[in-house]
């Protein structure tokens, strides 16, 4: 049996598939994991908690206290999503992204599936790219979850109307939905550098928990350094430097400077970490 079919295939039978199957499989494995859904559920809970807490609170929120726009939620439910994103950006989103990005290679190595993927053969570079694409997909899903859950909670619990921007101008509900999407896109881009760092760390170990923890620690350290005025020279190089810069999308007119700076910075991190991860992984002895 095998010899015949093997011979006929070797003789030039059409080889099917462009290799997208691995990406599809990666996404389906990622989103069929209970862990992924648990994290997305936790993220979805943040805006709901905020909305419910504000709804139940009898005291009106003092302007200027608490996260951005917290005081406006009661007047306009559309602010729930933005407030939730502000709350999630420093810790919750990096936490979940760190788990997914740190797990990319180390998780497969830990399960022993890494060697079978390589023997399939998935190809090391292709596997690395697909794994990163999976992490990027999770970044999109995570920010989209917070945005969608926030918008939903806001619409259900509070009145909805024109939205006031930081500049004091008001925009229509439709325009505000567009800006919310822009903010979600901005935050997704913000998380790409961290994902690349997670991927890189992940190639160095067979212990996924270690890679996840290291990635999360990186995100915390970067934010702490960003708050030390003594290290001002370092700030523009920290991957978390522009994380809260999405406020620029809430100005009138939209200030694209932060978006551009952030994208360039994240691209730099992707290039450097990607190159290092490629070098490490293509030389790695898979012994797990």
């Amino acid at each position: 049996m095998s010899a015949e079919t093997a011979a006929s295939r070797n003789a030039g039978a059409p080889r099917q598939g462009k290799g997208w199957a691995l990406l599809g499989s990666e996404l389906s494995v990622l989103f069929r994991r209970l862990r992924t859904w648990a994290m997305l559920t936790a993220l979805a809970a943040v805006p709901i908690l905020i909305a419910v807490a504000v709804k139940l609170s009898s005291r009106p929120t003092t302007p200027g206290r608490g996260p951005l726009f917290l005081d406006r939620i009661t007047q306009n439910g559309l602010f729930v999503a933005v407030t939730a994103l502000v709350v999630c950006v420093p810790l919750f989103l990096p936490l979940t992204v760190g788990v997914v990005a740190g797990d990319t290679i180390a998780g497969e190595a830990n399960l022993g599936t890494l060697r079978y993927l390589l023997l399939a053969p998935a190809g090391r570079i292709r596997l690395l790219l697909v794994k990163y694409a999976g992490a990027v997909a999770f970044c999109c899903a995570a920010t989209a979850t917070v945005t969608a859950s926030g918008a939903l909670a806001g619409v259900v619990l509070f009145p909805v109307g024109p939205v006031t921007l930081l500049s004091g101008d008001t925009i229509s509900v439709g325009e505000s939905a567009w800006r919310s999407l822009l903010i979600a896109a901005y935050i997704t881009v913000s998380l790409l550098g961290l994902s690349a760092i997670g991927l890189l760390i992940s190639t160095f170990t067979d212990v996924p928990v270690g890679a996840m923890a290291a990635t999360i620690v990186f995100s915390v350290v970067s934010q702490v350094l960003d708050n030390l005025p003594q290290l001002e020279w370092l700030h523009p190089w920290l991957f978390s430097h522009h994380w809260l810069g999405f406020a620029d999308l809430l100005r009138q007119p939209v200030s694209w400077t932060s978006f551009g700076d952030n994208a360039i910075l994240q691209a730099g991190y992707i290039a450097v970490c990607g190159a290092l991860a490629y070098a490490k992984f293509s030389n790695k002895d898979v012994l797990s």
Partner: peptide, 13 residues
């Protein structure tokens, strides 16, 4: 299915 998908030459049909 996952491991077979990793082989880009494995026909998906």
């Amino acid at each position: 299915m996952r491991l077979d998908a990793a082989d880009r030459h494995a026909p998906s049909s």
